[in-house]
């Protein structure tokens, strides 16, 4: 098989790289280690803008990836998870693999000196007007939900679950929205950003759903239908997409 002349391929190489899958960042990483031309192209702001625009037509909005310090896997999700940072549970790491930007946030639970049982988070792209396709380290938001122990409470008492929204533009967390429910501990699994302007988290073992409304900053529990309680395998939820919509916050 004869290899094509590289100078000929240059014309179309950008179009080919544009079609590298968005859901496998290792692919773009490997491509950027091929040669100078590819490396410069893949790091070019104009190319990145086109790349995101190209895939946005086919994919849901996404900013970051799960980065689990203990695992070599970087896994993308609809609404990516901000991972607890290496230094402990008091910080969250938000990583944008396209720009390499890493930002660390102090978790709101830590700010309030709450002793958390379990927490989950989602990194969201703050869109409205500007699509932030090419601006590295553009504004983002983080939805953070945690179940925690109230001082002086016994284990048996239903512990509260709160959600906060962080805005990178103001650098602050919103006031918490809190629910008291016997099964509202967030399950540290990928969340789903739905078109209705809300992020959905699963609760422990996927028994219920936590819905965090990004407009009203309101956390609610969507209880699953009663199924035999002895069945500890958890439930499976499907989110059905009805209509794409941009996020409501700016």
């Amino acid at each position: 098989m004869a290899a094509p002349a590289p100078e000929l391929m240059d014309d179309v190489v950008e179009e080919i790289l544009l079609r590298l899958p968005l859901d496998d960042p290792s692919c773009a990483a490997r491509a950027s280690a091929v040669c100078k031309h590819w490396r410069h192209l893949l790091a070019d702001a104009g190319f990145l803008r086109r790349y995101r625009a190209f895939h946005r037509r086919r994919a849901p909005p996404r900013l970051g990836f799960i980065y689990d310090a203990g695992s070599p896997l970087a896994r993308p999700w609809t609404a990516a998870t901000a991972a607890p940072s290496d230094s402990g549970d008091d910080e969250l790491t938000v990583w944008d693999p396209m720009s390499g930007d890493v930002q660390r946030l102090r978790s709101p639970a830590d700010t309030l000196a709450l002793r958390t049982n379990i927490e989950a988070s989602a990194v969201l792209r703050a869109v409205s007007g500007c699509d932030h396709g090419g601006c590295h380290g553009g504004p983002f938001a983080v939805a953070f939900v945690a179940n925690y122990v109230m001082e002086g409470e016994e284990e048996e008492i239903t512990s509260p679950t709160s959600a906060w929204l962080y805005s990178s533009e103001t650098g602050t967390w919103s006031a918490p929205s809190t629910v008291h429910h016997h099964n509202a501990e967030p399950f540290p699994k990928p969340s789903v950003l739905a078109g209705d302007g809300a992020v959905y988290f699963l609760t422990w073992h996927g028994r219920n759903i936590l819905r965090y409304d990004l407009r009203k900053l309101d956390l609610t529990v969507i209880a699953s239908p009663e199924i035999d309680d002895d069945d500890d395998d958890g439930h499976i939820f499907f989110f059905l997409r009805q209509r794409a919509e941009t996020l409501p916050f700016q």
Binding site: A3, P4, A5, P6, M9, R30, A31, A33, V34, C35, K36, W38, R39
Partner: peptide
Amino acid sequence: PEEIRTAFGIEYDL
């Protein structure tokens, strides 16, 4: 990266 270079006839110039 090496397999890609071979497939596309690209020279290593990093």
